[in-house]
Design a protein around this nucleic acid. Structure first.
Lengths: 332, 332
DNA sequence: CTGAAAGCGCTTACAG
DNA sequence: CTGAAAGCGCTTACAG
């Protein structure tokens, strides 16, 4: 490890001057700057970032709290976060929480021990809310939105997107439109659910309680929920799944029971995973701008970090309905 | 920010004693320990980790270099790394490289600026090889193996797994077995390729050059490669894709051309993505113990970090052939 | 424009 | 068992 001291000796200047020449070049004369830079290169100087961070009381790191890194929806967002953070010279510390509150709080505590300058939270709660100092912590939320107003949020118009799906089904002549929802209490689920209900009302389609099943956003749960829907005396003619993974599970189960998609039952998802356009049939779904979520989150977080105290506006990003072959006209 | 000094005042002892009471409890007397702990709790003391890391010259962080975080195969491994690292009190810094060497080197440089204590590399090269000090850096490799012996590797028996696929096809009576390979120069591709060739020899099946196409492990490339294979006068009866994503793309294309899987063509993949058992047809593939890859990598890395200099053994983890419905008997 | 000095918050030999 | 002191490698007011 070469230090600033060695550079200073070789260049024949003080350590203060080395620091200035390297970090604030216009505070030193042209000639010393050159001397210093030459010396630094000669000894292969690289600042000890641990010392820099300690001294500056900045970690140059952001913590990302994510329920499950290996969830493809999240991992795309993380990819966007990473890209944007790197541009700003920040590191991304990965915090896999498995949706465990204690884990979230423990990880979030890193902002209080100077290990992170801010937090991007991908789950629907504020892990800091119990902490006295929480108001001072830069934190933003994406995806499953924190609805208590305790932090700025980057969200999709989930309600509008769900209505767009229902409207699409209605255009195709469907009037028994089932829903495979997410778990109770998830804001994202609530929003899509209200969009589903609003959509049905707008289209003057009866709301049938028994056509609404809960899943947990996994493929397995989609298959199970679809199984329940198919057991009804009168089956749905279309199913709106609150994410692509449940749609994949649902289609799997529908097929298992000898029915066809879309001929017997139309199925739509939500998220537009990479995979969704390659499956059979390709899935009608809602595209979310995942990478943009990540990028905007980083931008917002930096705004909060720099102009601390100032509140930052929440942001709603646009969705896009993508019609593929998993949905078709209702049989007359 | 409360510091050790405030605790020391409140407890009426020196800062040295506070440090000892908190970090090396058995170096102080029972009574002082209690005093200190009480005082620490009272002021809500949490050590400034920036200072601790700086002082100890340890970052308590490992850097994970990954070509693409949002690749489901990688993200599962990362999940395993994260879990294991957290157990040891280490943070995971995420380094998305997009397979760009300059980015890898820049990120890898973090070990020289004390921002990371070691590296887990998921791509097939040593980003430090040009650095004079590279021999001193704890680094391990997973997945697409670094074959130059410059670091320990955690690998799958790719050759054996590929042979198992061929053997499975042969058992089903196939004798025109195509391959959709990965890109030239990827060690993992080479290993699966040699397994494919070895397998064909063992089964006394002719090797047909024109039945071997390259992809880049993406679904798109799988579809394109399948298109080329289908254009042959005599089509293959089975296709071994070097990963699940290319298999997904291939099946998509086969269907597009009005053929059936597995009735007309059997398809096998490699990786066993979550999704593979829910697709239609469910995919015959090789299960890799992804999370274990991550866990073992962390273990190995810690071994290297602690007993520096000592070389650590590479490790080969077992594969498992998973037979599903995408493969069936060859038509007579 | 430049240098000497203080200090960020810890830990640890050293002495008692 | 405990304390005073040094020091990790930087940056920055302060003085010149």
């Amino acid at each position: 490890m070469t230090t600033i001291r060695q550079v200073s000796k070789l260049a024949g200047v003080s350590v203060a001057t080395v620091s200035r020449a390297l970090q604030k070049p216009d505070m030193v004369s042209e000639s010393t700057r050159k001397k210093v830079i030459t010396a630094a290169e000669e000894v292969g100087y690289q600042p000890n970032m641990m010392a820099v961070k300690f001294r500056n009381k900045k970690s140059f790191a952001i913590l990302v709290l994510v329920p499950d890194v290996s969830n493809p929806f999240f991992s795309k967002i993380i990819s966007g976060i990473q890209t944007q953070a790197k541009k700003k010279g920040y590191n991304v510390i990965l915090g896999n929480t498995a949706n465990d509150l204690a884990t979230e709080q423990e990880l979030a505590n890193m902002v209080f021990t100077n290990q992170a300058d801010g937090i991007i939270q991908l789950a629907a709660r504020n892990p800091l809310i119990d902490n006295i100092r929480h108001a001072t912590v830069p934190i933003v939320n994406i995806c499953d939105c924190v609805t208590d107003g305790s932090m700025p949020v980057i969200r999709l118009d989930n309600n509008g997107a769900a209505k767009a799906i229902i409207s699409h089904f209605a255009d195709l002549g469907h009037n028994r439109i089932a829903a495979i929802m997410g778990p109770d209490g998830s804001p994202i689920t609530e929003q899509r659910l209200s969009g589903y209900l609003d959509g049905l009302k707008e289209q003057k389609i009866d709301i049938i309680e028994s056509l609404m099943e809960r899943g947990d956003y996994s493929m397995e749960s989609g298959a199970i929920a679809a199984g329940k829907l198919l057991a009804h005396e009168v089956r749905p003619t279309a199913i709106f799944c609150f994410n692509d993974e449940m749609a994949i599970g649902a289609i799997h189960e529908i097929r298992n029971q000898g029915l066809r998609v879309p001929d017997d039952i139309s199925v739509a998802g939500f998220d537009n995973l990479n995979f969704s356009r390659f499956m059979d049939p390709p899935l009608t779904t809602i595209r979310q701008p995942n990478a943009h979520f990540g990028q905007h989150a980083v931008e917002m977080l930096f705004e909060m970090i720099s102009q601390q105290g100032q509140s930052v506006e929440s942001l709603t990003l646009p969705y896009e309905l993508i019609v593929r072959k998993s949905t078709t006209k209702a049989k007359p």
